[in-house]
C-alpha cells in the first residue's frame, strides 16, 4: 500500500473539512473495498478520513407513516439507516426485520461474517460497485441518499459503474426509504468473489409503484429493467415474469458467464425474488 495520511473524524462536518483540506483524500468507512484496492496499489489517496468514530452516522430509525394527520399507519414506514451502520447491524436489527425483512436478508448475504462486521451501507453506496447489492435495493426502493450537503434521489445518484452523483467533498450521512408493500431480492453470487453475478431487487411501494433494479449483470452498473417492471406492474407473479423477454444486450460477458447466461439469471432471480 502506498503511503497515506490517516485522520480520524469525530463528526461528519469534521470529516468534510478534512476532506476539503486534503490533496486527494478519501473517506474511509468500513474499508472493505477501499483497503483491498489500496493494497493492490490501484488506489493511492493522499489522505484517509476515518468515520468509524462518528457515532452520529450509525444506527437505524423507523418512523411510522402519518395517515389523516395524526393516526400512525402500519406499512410504508420511513426507514433511515446511518451511513456507518454495518451490514451485520442491518442484518440483525430486530425492528427493521419487522418492517422490511428483505433489506436485512440482503445485508446478511453481503460478503462474509467478518466483512459484514466492518463493511457499511454508506461505503457500499459511495463505492457503487457494479456487483454490489445495496445499489439495487436503493434504486428499487426509490431511496434517498443523504449527504452532508443535500439529499439525492437514488434515480439521480447511481451514474454507472463506480460512478455516483457525489461531488469530491461530499459525504454520505444516511440513506432513507419507505418500507415497501412487498419486496424481494434474488441474488446469484459469482462463484469466486461471491459478489452478485445477477442480483434483482423487486419492490412494490405502498402506493403501488413497481420498480425492478438489476445489479451485477449490466455492463455499466445497476439499472432498472423496464420490461420486468411493466410485467410486474400488470401482474405481480412469476408467471408474468416468465413471459418477459430479457435481452442480453448491454449485459456483461466474462469468464464466469456470457451475456445470455446473465440474461437468464436476471429472469430466474426475478422469479426467486418474488417467492
Amino acid at each position: 500500500m502506498y503511503e497515506t495520511n490517516f485522520h480520524k473524524a469525530s463528526t461528519a462536518q469534521d470529516a468534510a473539512a478534512l476532506l476539503a483540506k486534503s490533496d486527494d483524500g478519501k473517506i474511509l468507512a468500513g474499508g472493505q473495498t477501499l483497503i483491498p484496492t489500496m493494497k493492490q496499489r490501484l488506489a493511492a489517496p493522499s489522505d484517509l478520513i476515518d468515520l468509524s468514530q462518528v457515532s452520529a452516522l450509525r444506527g437505524i430509525t423507523i418512523t411510522k407513516r402519518k395517515k389523516m394527520g395524526i393516526m400512525k399507519a402500519e406499512g410504508g414506514e420511513t426507514i433511515t439507516i446511518g451511513a456507518m451502520t454495518t451490514h451485520s447491524e442491518v442484518a440483525g436489527d430486530a425492528e427493521l426485520v419487522k418492517v422490511c425483512p428483505v433489506i436485512c436478508q440482503l445485508a446478511g448475504n453481503i460478503g462474509d461474517p467478518a466483512v459484514r462486521h466492518r463493511g457499511t451501507i454508506g461505503g457500499s453506496v459511495a463505492n457503487n460497485d457494479p456487483a454490489a447489492d445495496y445499489p439495487a435495493a436503493l434504486l428499487a426502493l426509490g431511496a434517498t441518499i443523504h449527504t452532508n450537503a443535500r439529499e439525492i434521489a437514488a434515480a439521480d445518484y447511481f451514474k454507472g459503474m463506480f460512478a455516483t452523483a457525489l461531488t469530491d467533498d461530499e459525504i454520505i450521512t444516511a440513506v432513507s426509504f419507505q418500507a415497501p408493500a412487498v419486496a424481494g431480492y434474488g441474488k446469484f453470487p459469482n462463484p469466486a468473489s461471491r459478489y452478485a453475478m445477477a442480483g434483482v431487487f423487486v419492490a412494490k411501494s405502498v402506493e403501488g409503484d413497481v420498480r425492478v433494479a438489476v445489479t451485477g449483470a449490466g455492463d455499466n452498473g445497476v439499472y432498472r429493467h423496464a420490461g420486468l417492471e411493466a410485467a410486474l406492474s400488470a401482474d405481480w407473479s412469476a408467471a408474468s415474469v416468465e413471459a418477459v423477454e430479457v435481452s442480453a444486450d448491454g449485459l456483461m460477458s466474462d469468464l464466469h458467464g456470457n451475456a445470455a447466461y446473465r440474461a437468464n439469471l436476471i429472469k430466474v432471480m426475478t422469479k426467486r425474488a418474488l417467492a
Partner: peptide
Amino acid sequence: MFENVVYDDAGQQLSASYMDYTM
C-alpha cells in the same frame, strides 16, 4: 466444478486472484 486458470489472447491471466479463481 470450480477452478480454472484463464488467459486472454495477450497472455494476461484473468483469474489471478480469489475474485476470479474459484476456490
